[in-house]
Amino acid sequence: MTVFLSLGQRPEEPGPPITGPAAYPPEVAARLADDAARIVARYPQARSALLPLLHLVQSEDGCLTPAGIAFCAGRLGLTDAEVTAVATFYSMYRRTPTGDYLVGVCTNTLCAIMGGDEILDALQDQLGVHAGQTTGDGRITLEHIECNAACDYAPVVMVNWEFFDNQTPASARDLVDALRGGTPVTPTRGAPLCTFRETSRTLAGLADPRAVTNPGGTGEATLAGLRVARANGMAAPDADSTKESASEPDPSITEAADSTRDEPAPAPESAAPPPVNGSQP
């Protein structure tokens, strides 16, 4: 059986990996340099500041551009290629212009079976765009996202990486209508919602002047496993007993390991495994 693998950019990413202006205007470069100096000063080695600096330049352009790549490289003594290699590895750095609100629908297994796929379909119809595209008014960029560790509140929609839990197609449609219309919306927990560029500045490590109005905390769904454990008399092992057992390995395991320590590794089997479903190897 022949399998073809398509390598390269995702289909929704048109053109070269990073496009746009090659350099910032002097006044923009000077402003970014002041912010970058504050960020870099926090790290013993300047190059450790690369990830926050990428967020900083993303806050300027709404995505990464050659100007942002060159700025980061110049500040950290790296090459453009080294910065690009890091920037294109992480999905949190956008390669195409992003709207005011990056709306992500989790379509990993649990969210999908709880309705995530239906939510994504509903939003694509509502907004008239496919995942990876931005609405014509520049307000919303829609995408499907990987797990964001909120499975206990599935299905989850994230807006600029703030949580909107237990969504339905109807509630998700109401959410994007409010975003497009300028109506304030409140995340389930975390900081008040702001634009994508403002979020990027916060992720760069610059001070967020807003107060956290939705601290959230541990909810009932998160505590379900703990309630079941207590109802069944289950408890974690005592820390002292765990340390004691770890310091005294099973003698039979130690003897077995010692008996084979100097033996050569087994040779590969000469017989090929049988074909699967009648296919030829």
Rank of each mutant, 00 (worst) to 15 (best):
L76N: 09
P184C: 09
A73E: 05
S171Q: 12
Q126L: 01
A33P: 00
G225L: 12
T254L: 15
V276K: 11
S171H: 10
E146P: 00
N166D: 15
A49S: 10
G136D: 13
T98M: 12
G62V: 11
L5F: 12
P215D: 08
G104L: 13
V176K: 05
N108G: 09
V276L: 15
E143V: 10
G233V: 10
Y101S: 03
L203W: 13
C72L: 05
S91F: 04
P11R: 14
A87K: 09
P268Y: 06
G233C: 08
N214R: 05
D238G: 13
A224N: 01
C111H: 05
M92V: 11
A23W: 00
M92H: 07
F4A: 11
A73R: 08
R75Q: 15
G128W: 09
P273S: 12
L102F: 13
W161T: 13
F163E: 05
E118H: 12
Q9E: 13
Q126M: 07
G181S: 14
D250P: 02
P281V: 09
R201C: 01
Q124G: 09
S171G: 06
P14W: 06
A257F: 11
A229S: 07
D238T: 06
G138I: 09
R75T: 04
A229T: 02
S171C: 03
A33C: 00
C194Y: 01
P192E: 10
L127S: 03
V156R: 04
R201I: 00
A41C: 08
Q133N: 09
A87Q: 10
T98W: 12
T260G: 03
S279Q: 14
L50H: 01
Q167S: 09
D208K: 07
L179C: 10
A33M: 00
L5H: 11
T186F: 05
S171L: 15
T199K: 10
I253C: 00
Y153A: 09
E198R: 10
S259Y: 00
D152Q: 13
S241D: 15
L226T: 14
L102G: 01
D34T: 13
V157Q: 04
L78T: 06
N148E: 11
A131I: 06
A33L: 02
Q133V: 01
A224P: 00
V185P: 04
P209H: 06
N166L: 13
S270F: 02
P169R: 13
A271Q: 12
P11M: 10
N214W: 02
G8P: 05
Q45H: 13
I69W: 05
D121A: 15
V57N: 07
T195G: 14
L203P: 00
